[in-house]
Design a protein around this nucleic acid. Sequence first.
DNA 1: CCGCAGGCCTTAG
DNA 2: CTAAGGCCTGCG
Length: 288
Amino acid sequence: MEVRWEEAGARVLLPAPLRLSDTLMCGQAFRWSVAGEGEFCGVVGQQAVRLRQETDGFFISPCTPETFEGLWRGYFDLDFDYAACESALCADEVMGGMAAACRGLHLLNQPVWECLLSFLVSANNNIGRIRGSMEALAKMSGTALEGGVYALPTPAQLGAFSEAQLRACGLGYRAPYVQETARAVADGFALGALAELPYEEAKRKLMTLKGVGEKVADCVLLFSCGHREAFPVDVWVERAMRRVYPALQGDRKAIGAFARQTYGSYAGLAQQYLFHYLRNLEKEGQHA
DNA sequence: CCGCAGGCCTTAG
DNA sequence: CTAAGGCCTGCG
């Protein structure tokens, strides 16, 4: 990897492709939007940035060496060996093809609070509404950034809002979950420690929060705590797994256990590939 | 009008 | 412990 510093930002050159569109729009983060052909804008933490897809990497602006090292390098998972992952998954007849088809799709390592908030809101919800709620929450927090966008509320800010205010952001019956969990985090629930705990322990701890079940916990562990063996099983992944492993028995919990056993620390990426494959690539194939 | 959308919580058996 | 219901709300 090589970073070339320019006036407006940074040009990041990568040994293997990073497909921004698949990575940003596949439902692991909800604050990115398309800003033109191969261009995206979004907010992560206190940073509002634009990205441009390039054949050998991407361009990001604004970006300083400090924010690159402190945030973006990890966020875009730039140090992970995706080639090694692909060859490992090739040992499995089903996953090998999917990994190759999804080449360039990266996991994002997101700030843990905004990831938790996103997936609390995501429960039994659709992407359009999730995005709308996140924007409304950010606006309500009032922390303005460059370009007329807003940072998400902190746990303390969010916990101070009334349930009615939260419902006005479209949270529906999730409003009390969000409020209660925000207050727990503001009161010292150690989100940052989850990355240091073993996967099972971190998951149990997360699930003590209101509104956090198995699926939401696995999303948080995978997308912001570096627990790559987490395998969130939603309706789509369940559907995909049953299709590609017709002999697979049991409920969602059993499917998750099977995936961790089969793919090990690559389970989380396998889940991304399954999800993306079923929702996007297969559709494209049908249209062709 | 009805069922679902990237589930979770509560209650009943 | 497992299995149903109910739940905000917009869209097909």
